[in-house]
């Protein structure tokens, strides 16, 4: 059923900290590694060693430069499904392949129903859905349902693969419907942002904006001009730079 549940019992999702993400791509590869054997497997790669490698990924990290009047900085930006509360990707699906779970709010695709019309990928503003040309069905982030409920894993590992892999702890997993959950508190404290809120998809995931810089001003004295040195060192320098 592509009609949305009126309410969900929980609303699981991620808080992604743009302050600590270093763009190392660990979450990207870890997501691929887990999910290519997971619920939506495989995450097909086409021409992986050839001229134009192409393939399905559920999580991709962009890099931006933000320039304001007073500062400029580099920001790494992981982009995966935000498990929206009003996901048009689900309601546009003509077959019932896309659905949002009432129990935990996770948005999934039933591969056996998908006809490959791709309309859901047009309806997602965030580019979270990727088509598998090989299998002919739409695929997307599952919030690692096969990890977070997996009783074969030790309890501390029952988090999404991307969360477990992040070396800086920039990805946090939890229930946003509970105002006292760790992710809700973190998002509140850090002013977590809803991406493209104006479109009304009500994404669950929150992005924690980079903090203001700790050091007050950036007036570091410029390096001294390099003057030609004399003596033995100067001679060696001249010799080597010839």
């Amino acid at each position: 059923m592509t009609s949305l549940p009126k309410t969900t019992e929980r609303q699981l999702g991620l808080a992604i900290d743009l302050d600590s993400c270093v763009g190392c791509q660990a979450c990207v590869t870890s997501c691929k590694e887990w999910n290519t054997g997971g619920h939506m497997a495989p995450l097909t790669d086409l021409d992986p060693y050839g001229e134009n490698p192409d393939g399905v990924w559920f999580n991709r990290v962009h890099t931006y430069e933000q320039v304001t009047e007073t500062k400029s900085r580099t920001i790494h930006f992981p982009r995966s499904c935000l498990h929206c509360a009003e996901p048009a990707c689900v309601t546009v699906c003509p077959t019932g392949a896309s659905y949002k779970r009432q129990s935990d709010g996770i948005v999934l695709v039933d591969e056996d129903k998908c006809i490959g019309c791709k309309l859901c990928s047009w309806a997602c503003p965030y580019g979270a859905r990727e088509f598998d040309d090989d299998v002919g069905v739409m695929k997307k982030c599952t919030l690692c349902i096969d990890r977070i409920y997996n009783e074969n894993l030790p309890e501390e590992n029952r988090v999404p693969a991307c969360v477990a892999a992040c070396p800086t702890g920039a990805r946090h997993f939890g229930d946003f419907s509970d105002p006292d959950s760790a992710v809700s508190v973190l998002s509140r404290e850090r002013g977590g942002v809803e991406l493209m809120a104006e479109l009304g998809y009500r994404p669950t995931n929150r992005y924690l904006p980079p903090r203001a810089r700790a050091c007050g001003d950036n007036n570091i004295a410029p390096l001294e001009a390099v003057a030609g040195e004399g003596g033995l060192l100067g001679w060696i320098d001249r010799l080597l730079s010839r």
Binding site: L18, R60, Y64, E65, V67, R79, P125, V193, M196, Y207
Partner: peptide, 17 residues
Amino acid sequence: SATGLGEGTVRSVQWPH
């Protein structure tokens, strides 16, 4: 608003692929 980086100009400097 797409990146949640409210102020200033935001320029893509590197794609994920």
